[in-house]
Design a protein around this nucleic acid. Structure first.
Lengths: 179, 179
DNA sequence: GTCAATTACTTTATACTTAAAGCAATTTTA
DNA sequence: TAAAATTGCTTTAAGTATAAAGTAATTGAC
């Protein structure tokens, strides 16, 4: 027989739940945040694959382009999607091969290329976005608007807190703006 | 000249910020959550690499094993880290090659193997965890304990909301526990 | 203007990740 | 108990991701 060390329901066996109640609050917030993000992301990923046969990174890239009428440079995409520039190169290559985006040379700066949705890409994205939005709505359905607004606010504070903290290694210079 | 369409500081050019103020609240919460998670995760990743020359997935796996005196099966690791089982196979292979964990056959069930920290793995993890915790503390330093507690609570609600929602395709059966 | 930085992107090597198929051991069902 | 289903894990193929090195174009210092 498999030793039944852990009889808790699956709902309570994820990364964060293994922390004891008296553990550091900071760590618990971070792990629960990560759990939520993973949970939502994996469902969106599965939905996109099952319904539209597209991957999440490609959808995300299309979503950025959809709001940028003039297209975006590789660097802008890299910054907005918060991934490395090499990653964007590969993603764009695949989307170009699928005919969903096009790479235009920039007249202003020959190092840059500007990526835009093709008509087919725009059509594909327009079909996906309402369904995607519905999934998100459903996943947040048990929260009141007040709770969502509060959560949005606290996440804003968290975001600023992280951004104002020095990087994990740097000695603490530049922290004080004593000048 | 590069067209200066976007003069906002880098802080405001990420995925979520491109959403207009009147967009759906649900979507804004999700995108901001994702931004926070990415932000923290990439800093932790960079810190682990720079300071301990280890990757984040390996650290996460070691962290799970550290709290499980009897070790964990591959399936338990997969569930707790919220990644596929094939992923765990590869990660474990690499950690075994590094001598940080060991794979023991399970006497109870010959399909299972039980993964445990080696003494070297335990030593390595013990050196990392206080530093890792300090990074997290620093990143959350601008939040009060009250705000963190509130955030933890709201994330708990979010987690339950997501878990109670059907998967992104399923028609809505099993939703009502009317039995 | 010239040459050293810097910038924008690509390439490379390695690692991580998933989905799906596959295999062997176990459990369930009849 | 024997066949059928399930479970636990591995393998495979394709894609995603980083870091680091490389290339070409632009900028800046002089």
């Amino acid at each position: 027989m498999p030793d039944d060390t852990d009889l808790r329901p699956a709902e309570f066996t994820d990364r964060e739940s293994a922390l004891a109640r008296d553990d550091k609050l900071e760590l618990r917030v971070w792990l629960r945040l990560l759990t939520c993000a993973n949970l939502i992301e994996s469902r969106v990923r599965a939905g996109l694959r099952a319904t539209f046969d597209i991957t999440l990174p490609r959808f995300d890239l299309l979503a950025q382009l959809d709001r940028a009428a003039e297209g975006l440079t590789m660097g802008e995409l890299s910054e907005r999607l918060m991934v490395s520039n090499g990653n964007i190169t590969g993603l764009t290559d695949r989307l170009v091969a699928e005919g969903l985006v096009s790479r235009l040379p920039s007249r202003a700066d020959r190092r840059q290329s500007r990526v835009k949705l093709t008509p087919a890409g725009k059509r594909a994205f327009d079909a996906m976005t309402p369904v995607h939005e519905r999934w998100i709505d459903e996943m947040l359905a048990a929260m009141s608007r007040r709770e969502m607004a509060q959560l949005l606010d606290l996440l804003g504070k968290l975001k600023r807190s992280v951004q104002s903290a020095g990087l994990p290694d740097e000695p603490c210079d530049k922290a004080g703006e004593t000048t």
